[in-house]
Amino acid sequence: MKVKGTVHKYGDNIDTDVIIPARYLNTTDPEELKLHCMEDIDAGFVNKVKPGDIMTGGKNFGCGSSREHAPIAIKSAGIACIIAESFARIFYRNAINIGLPIIESAPAVKAIKDGDIVEIDFDKGRIKVGDKVYNAPAFPQFIQDIISAGGLLKKTGAKNGL
């Protein structure tokens, strides 16, 4: 799978409170959550994001609350992949579990500028920024199995004979 899109670049420690403020957690509807995605750090984001765009962050992306509403809001806003220097662990799990592709690459993040067009080849683990190519580490087999099953619950369901 390949994606190519325009980058929305953010800094270090992007927390789940700014990704989706708690005042909107009285709903579980992705269509409603996406309207408030990144609202407290970039109020213009929802108006400029296009399906297939890419988000980048610095260190510890998605820190804070365990709210799955955060990756759900980003995914339903149209973001095809997040590249960050590192992810907070609960966000990392949640993104994989809901099928939002994420990649860790500090060199790529450092090279990417807001508004750049970036191409990601997930099968080869490559991030292309202009003429430069960055390699990202592959997921462990266990995680690849979750992704190829179509998410954690499909894997759980298959195992339980459902």
Partner: peptide, 18 residues
């Protein structure tokens, strides 16, 4: 440890977590 809602759903069904 803290997890998200999908992990919780899988845990409720299987009693297990990866």
């Amino acid at each position: 440890t803290g997890v998200g809602s999908t992990d919780m759903a899988a845990g409720m069904a299987s009693g297990k977590v990866w």
